[in-house]
Every structure is written in structure tokens, then in C-alpha cells.
Amino acid sequence: MTGTPPAHFALAKAVAAVPQGAPVPAAEIFAHGTMKLEFYAPDGVDRQQPHAQDELYIVQQGSGVFLRGEERFGFGPGDALFVRAGVVHRFEDFSDDLAVWVVFWGPDGGEAA
């Protein structure tokens, strides 16, 4: 490994990294091995598709309903939401200020239980 990976990821820089008008308003902030840190701030409708890796959402701000497979549950700031690779999921009925950190990791298809 060359150099030391960064240890701090500022919210303001993550927000600024999201491309304006992108169909999926997200930006990769950091990658290390199989792990990726992204910032996601959907605008009105969450159009994401299932992902190849397991993922963890950490809600920075906002609230709403999260769909994971057949489950639906409320979420708010500070909550963490786990989704296995390949599972249909999305944010629904969410506030205009929704902003989440997303951590992807592991092999395509997800890790064994």
C-alpha cells in the first residue's frame, strides 16, 4: 500500500461532489480494496437499482420510508440500513433534504452469511 488513506470525509465536500442533474445523484468519495464510500442525495424519486455488493446506508439527514425486498420501515437521521447484494430497495416518501452515506463492500453477489 502506498501512502495513508484519508481518515476524514467532510459532508460539504461530499455534497459538492454529486453531479447536478445526474439520473442517480451519487458520488464516490473513497475506495479501498472492495470497499467504496459514496454519498447519495435522491431528488424526488429514488431511481436506484439493486447493487452487486452488500451495502450499508447511514442517514445523515432526512426521513421517510425505506423499501427492502418486501419490507418497509421508517428511517431518520442517524439510522443505518443494511441491504444484501441484489435485493430490490429504495427510499420512498422521503423528505427533500434526504442525504445518506453509502458503504459498499465485499465480492459481487455479497458475502456469505
Rank of each mutant, 00 (worst) to 15 (best):
G3V: 04
G3W: 03
T4A: 03
P6Y: 01
P6C: 10
H8D: 00
F9D: 14
F9N: 06
A10K: 12
L11D: 06
A12S: 10
A14D: 02
A14C: 11
A16F: 06
V18I: 15
V18P: 10
A22I: 13
P23K: 05
P23C: 07
V24C: 04
V24K: 02
V24F: 11
E28A: 11
E28Q: 13
A31P: 00
T34R: 14
E38K: 13
Y40K: 05
Y40M: 12
A41P: 10
V45M: 02
Q49S: 11
P50L: 12
H51C: 00
H51R: 10
D54N: 15
D54R: 00
E55A: 03
L56G: 03
I58G: 00
V59D: 05
V59T: 07
S63P: 01
G64I: 15
V65D: 08
F66N: 05
F66L: 08
R68C: 13
R68M: 04
G69D: 13
E71V: 02
F75A: 02
G76K: 08
G76W: 06
P77K: 14
P77R: 10
V83A: 07
V83E: 00
A85G: 12
V87P: 01
E92T: 14
D93K: 02
D93I: 02
F94R: 15
F94D: 05
D96V: 11
V102G: 03
F104V: 12
W105T: 15
W105F: 05
W105L: 13
W105R: 01
G106M: 04
P107R: 08
D108P: 11
G109V: 09
G110A: 07
